[in-house]
Design a protein around this nucleic acid. Sequence first.
DNA 1: TTAGGGTTAG
Length: 625
Amino acid sequence: MMMTRTRFHLHAFIKQQQAVKGNSFLRPLKTPLSHSQQLGLQFSSTHTTTFLASLLHSDSFSNGDHRPQSKFQKVTSLDDALNLFDEMTQRRPLPSVIKFTQLLNAVTKMKHFSSCLDLFRQMCAIGVPVDEYSLSIAIRCCCRLYRTKDGFALLGCCFRRAVVPNVVVYNTLLDGLMLEDRILEAERLFKKLIKHKLCEPDVVTYSTMIKGLCKFGSNDIAIALLRLMDERRCKPDIVAYNTILDSLCKDRKIDDAFKLFNEMVFDKGILPNVITYNTLIYGLCLLGRWEEVSKMLKEMEDVSISPNFRTYSILVDAFCKEGKVDDAEAVIDIMVERGVSPNIVTYSSLIDGYCLRGEMNKARNVFDSLKCKGLVPDVVTYNSLLNGYCKNLEIEEAMLMFDEITKKGLKLNIVTYSTMLQGLFRVGRRGAARKLFDEMRAQGLVLNECAYGIILDGLCNNQHVEEALSLFHLVGDSKLNSNIVVYTILIDGANKCGKFDIAKDLFNALTLKGLQPNLRTYNVMISGLCGEGLLEEAKQLFLKMDDSGCPPNNVSYCVLLQGYLKNQHYDDVEMLLQEMDGRSYSLDASTLSLFIDQIAAGSLDRNMLKLIGRLVPKELMGTLA
DNA sequence: TTAGGGTTAG
């Protein structure tokens, strides 16, 4: 309801605000629809059509950045910068610190943080009187190199040189702490700034704290800080709001996001920008709320905000994840028509989309065509294709791809290794997997939750549950082992290897660990209990699901039914089927075939056939006939 | 007349 009201008023409201704020939203010229755009309307799904319609009606992309270029923006390579620096140091008198700062800035823009620090040191050595500007750039470089500690050392340098660190310097350090996940220290510094009046926190200080809080999943505290800054007469801006909106969207709390969005626009009079829209569109895509995505695209058009390459990329990715690669291709065509260049990210999504459908030739074609588009695949692109080959069990191709990554001078990361490991495990090449795992560790790569899960799962599925358990014990009492997914993999693995006792111990350990079983954990455990013929316990666990706020899904019913049928325990079967009917669930192929066998053998009442018939999904209708 | 915060891909 809220959404409808918003959609209805927003256009007019924003238009009115724009009029007040002058011409900053000048509408770009309309371009006529191209032939391929018109063709775009003929795509498959209904929501696609609405989508493309929204896209087709919006204006062409305009970059809009016409700021004058400083001399230092012409420095396009590190070599240029270093040469210029040398030249500057030889001039007499020395150029002002401002000139040097501009150069340092150009070098950091190119992300050459170490070099920038070298230059800064040289500046100090030759006696350039550094100020809070050049110092804050140097501190920022330390932070970006994950050496915030050195940033604090430079803060000491500030004091020695009688430069009083200002709010920008502190903001940079706060950002560095957040980058290193040192949220508690950031909080301490933030409080210290206020308590000791070291500087007056400004909108960037608050936004940096908000970003960190969101990163740690504390959306509520982030929102509280947003209120606090308002009270302290530091008006939150679009960045502060976008940060929280992004976090809410990523947490799939889209309704909360829209509530905040309304507050931002209607109560605070802050106009959304393209990032706000991208964020909300991303959140809606994540939930598959396509109609609303269309509305947002339309709304962007209404308020004259052109979609940018990220907007299109989000749509491409969302389509690919849905398996609608043709629609994703259509979005890319529209981008190109409008002069918005798809980048490597856009094409990586497309490759992913093809891989997901097992269309490896098409994925490969996209990959091979990158070069003539002037795009260089990065390690993520390679990982996508590698993942495709692995999932489609084309292990030889996958290994060729794996080798190619290093040949291209790219660094294999944890995702590359875990993708390849998963592939090797899937085809049962445990020896090769072991070798790769050792290589990965020799590279100094640290296991993350996903890689760890893949390895445990791979070992279990290759009948090496003991080895999985040794790894689990080796990892010990760490964050990696405080994850329900890890436990579920092991419980499942132990069951599949016939080690039910181990599965049961692991399941019982969950409460001690303070971990909440998820749907999959319950299903795996119910399956294990049924496998042991412990039907009463299986039933009790099944009943517990509802009470634990994790109601049984389709799989839970099928697992329990299979347990009952295999153990000739028919008492609850009809009741379960009726419940399934009530919940609009359906039987899967293996459960259905068990039913058919038992009815044929005369173990089950034929009267149940009608009920079973209602639970057969369309695609399995043939089986029943 | 030089510095700081926000959005996309595994």
